[in-house]
Computed example of a mutant assay.
Amino acid sequence: MSGGTVRERRLGAAAVTGTAVAAAGVAVGGWTFVADATTRAAANRWALVTGATLCYVVGFLAYHVDADRPAAAAAPPNLVTITRGLLYAAAAGFLVVPPSSVAGPVGTGASPPAVRWAPALCYGAGVTLDFADGRLARRTERTTPLGTKLDHAFDTLGFLVAPLVGVAWGRLPSAYLSLSAARYVYRAGTAWRRRRGRPVGDLPESRVRRPLAALQMAFITVALTPLLPAAVVHPAALVVVVPSLATFVRDYLAVTGRLDG
């Protein structure tokens, strides 16, 4: 084993270890925040869900770190992407701490403002970093296979946990979860075809796929904030989700040869 290879493996291991330490920091800091703002019982529930999601983030990185040069895990763009995963994990915990279940400090029946804003801030910060990591990778010419895997995995994680929190908090209609399910249905469908030996083509280029994803991310962030009443957000969600669902259907028809890309 060359010295360079040893150094790269050490950098990869350091990145995984650093991510684990950062995850522990998120868990401890988040528990303290939720406990101070609400109750220890609520904080324990938050820590249970967030802890499981943090384990997924660290485990995914550790499992895929050898998919590229191990040192790629320590590249700045990938560290930004990993931070996104940690932020989405923090947001996931609020799935079991809905505002209606925690009374504010004056017994009003509403959760403290800090808690009501926390999911939107965590998810919104992750969305902001989503635009930064790809640009940073291209600018520094450090686009890597590992970075692509992390980006896709944490995009999917965000699109899963944030809508779930939105539904649990009454901020989004349950029908909006069809967007989260669409990603898994698409992957399951293509995997089923491959197992049966049926052809699966390349995903066609699309000028609307990325803008629609950005639209959904921005909409989810706004929906999670207490700025707009649910009576406004719910019907808007049903309108906004349609183009993205149509894109998933189009992509599946294209890769299965039923539609020209």
Rank of each mutant, 00 (worst) to 15 (best):
V242R: 07
H152D: 10
S174M: 09
A23G: 15
V58N: 06
G18C: 13
V185M: 11
A23L: 02
G29H: 06
R138N: 13
L227K: 05
L224V: 11
K149S: 12
L136K: 01
A237P: 01
R198T: 09
L54C: 07
T144N: 11
D68Q: 05
R69D: 14
A62T: 11
I82E: 08
L228E: 04
T148W: 00
S178G: 15
T190E: 06
L121D: 02
A182C: 12
F94P: 04
L146F: 05
P99R: 05
A125Y: 01
F94Q: 02
M217A: 15
D68P: 07
V6R: 14
T247N: 10
D130Q: 14
G29E: 04
L129N: 09
V242D: 02
A223F: 01
T50Q: 05
T148Y: 00
L79N: 04
V185G: 10
A246N: 03
R116Q: 13
A75C: 07
R210L: 14
L177G: 08
Y88M: 10
R198Y: 03
R183T: 08
A120D: 10
L54E: 06
Y123C: 12
S2P: 14
E205T: 14
A62D: 14
A89T: 04
G158S: 08
L238Q: 08
P211W: 04
D260L: 04
V57C: 11
Y186T: 08
P99I: 02
A73K: 01
T19P: 02
L212T: 06
T39K: 00
V255C: 09
T32Q: 04
V208W: 07
G30H: 01
A22W: 01
A15N: 13
G257F: 03
P98I: 06
A89V: 04
W46M: 03
P235Q: 12
T17Q: 03
T38H: 00
L172G: 12
T17E: 04
F219P: 00
R187V: 07
A62N: 10
G104S: 12
P204S: 14
P105E: 09
D155S: 11
A231N: 07
G166F: 02
H64M: 03
G124F: 02
F60S: 11
R210K: 15
R84V: 03
A42Y: 00
L11C: 07
V255G: 13
T156C: 08
L54H: 07
V28K: 00
A27R: 03
P70D: 12
H234S: 07
A118D: 12
D66A: 13
D202N: 14
A27N: 01
G147F: 01
V232F: 09
R194A: 15
A89P: 03
S101F: 01
G18E: 10
L228M: 07
V208N: 05
H64G: 10
G29R: 00
A246S: 10
